[in-house]
Design a protein around this nucleic acid. Structure first.
Lengths: 168, 168
DNA sequence: TCGCACCTGAGACTCAGTCTCAATAAAACC
DNA sequence: GGTTTTATTGAGACTGAGTCTCAGGTGCGA
C-alpha cells in the first residue's frame, strides 16, 4: 500500500526535523492507524496491536499519538462528552461531527458556510482562531425511524449518559 | 438575594417531582453556584465549599451537579480539550465559547445565524439534533497584542497543551 | 561499526469521577 | 411532636484514562 508508505515518510520527515527517530513501534502504529478508516481511541489502538501480537506499551501508544497529532497526520476529536478520540487526517480538509446518542454512529460533515460564519464571529470579537471543535449530538435517521426519541427536555440533559453508551 | 431563592425553589420543585429531597448540602451548593458568575469545575466547587468551612463531600458535589444538570439549572460545557466545566443557566439562551489558549480566558457568544446553519446541516443529513457543543480555540485580543502567537502549524497542534494551562 | 541521544516497557502514579455502605436527615404519617 | 420511611450523606475504596520514571534497548549519523 503505497499511500501508507507516504504517510510514514511524512512522519519520518517530521521526526527528523526535530532530531527524533522513526522506530519500529512508531512505524507499526502509523501502519495500523492508516489502515483503518474511522475514529478510534488510544486504548482501542493498544488493544488492536495486542491482538496482532505486536508488543507495544501503553506509554508508547500515547507518546506516539501525541507526536502524530503534532505532526498533523492525526487529529484529536471530541465525540459526545467523553475522553479523546483520534482520526487520521486524509487529503480532505477539516470536518465536524454529528454524533448519534442512540447508536453511537458518527456522521462527518464539512460546511464552508459554517466555517465562514465562525471566522466572522471571531473577527467581531477580535479573536484569532487557531482551531475549533463542533459536535452536534442527536439522533440519526435510522434510529429516528426505529422510534429512538430525541429532544425531550429531559433527554437533552442526559446526553452525557447517552454518549456514554458509545464506550466499548 | 431573591434571585437565588427562586433557583432554589425551582430545584426543589424538580426534586420533589421525582420524590427527591432538598437537603442543606444541596441548598448550599446551589447558593454557591448561583452566587458566582462564571465557569467552574467540580473540584473547584468542592474547594470553595471547604474554604467556607461548609463540609460537603466530593461524592455529594458530583451527585448534586448531576441533578442540577438534569434539572436544567446548570449546564455542562467543554472548554478547550479538558474535563468538564459547568456554568449555571441564566435567563438567556444557549451560547458557545471562544477559549484563549494563552491566558485561559473564555468569551461567550451567541449567534443565531450560526445556529440556523447547523439546523440546516442536520436537516440535510436527516439528523435530529438535541444539543451541540462548539468551542473555538485561539488567542484573544489582549494576548494577541502582547505578542502571544497563534496559528503557526505547530501551535495549532499543541492546543491541547495550551488549554492545559487553564487547570488550577 | 560505534557511540550517544533518543526510545521503549513495566509499572507506579495522578486525577477526575464513581461506587459502596453504614450512619444520618428530610418529610410523610400518626 | 414523635415515629417511620426513604432518600441522602461522607469516607474512602475503586476505576479508567492518561502521565511519568528510569533502567535497558535501538536507530542512525559519523
Amino acid at each position: 500500500m503505497p499511500a501508507i508508505e507516504r504517510e510514514i515518510t511524512r512522519f519520518q520527515d517530521f521526526l527528523a526535523r526535530q532530531g527524533q527517530k522513526l522506530t519500529q513501534e512508531r512505524t507499526s502504529l502509523v501502519r495500523e492507524i492508516f489502515s483503518t478508516h474511522y475514529h478510534f481511541e488510544a486504548d482501542e489502538l493498544l488493544f488492536k496491536m495486542k491482538q496482532k501480537s505486536v508488543k507495544i506499551s501503553r506509554a508508547t501508544v500515547y507518546r506516539t499519538l501525541e507526536l502524530l497529532v503534532k505532526s498533523g497526520l492525526v487529529r484529536r476529536v471530541h465525540l459526545g462528552e467523553e475522553h479523546y478520540h483520534y482520526e487520521h487526517v486524509r487529503g480532505d480538509s477539516h470536518h465536524d461531527h454529528l454524533v448519534c446518542t442512540a447508536c453511537g454512529s458518527v456522521i462527518e460533515f464539512n460546511d464552508p458556510e459554517l466555517e465562514q460564519r465562525q471566522l466572522e464571529i471571531c473577527a467581531r470579537k477580535k479573536f484569532t482562531p487557531t482551531f475549533h471543535n463542533l459536535q452536534i449530538l442527536g439522533v440519526c435517521d435510522s434510529c429516528h425511524r426505529k422510534g429512538e426519541h430525541p429532544a425531550s427536555p429531559d433527554r437533552v440533559m442526559t446526553i452525557g449518559e447517552g454518549a456514554m453508551k458509545l464506550r466499548k
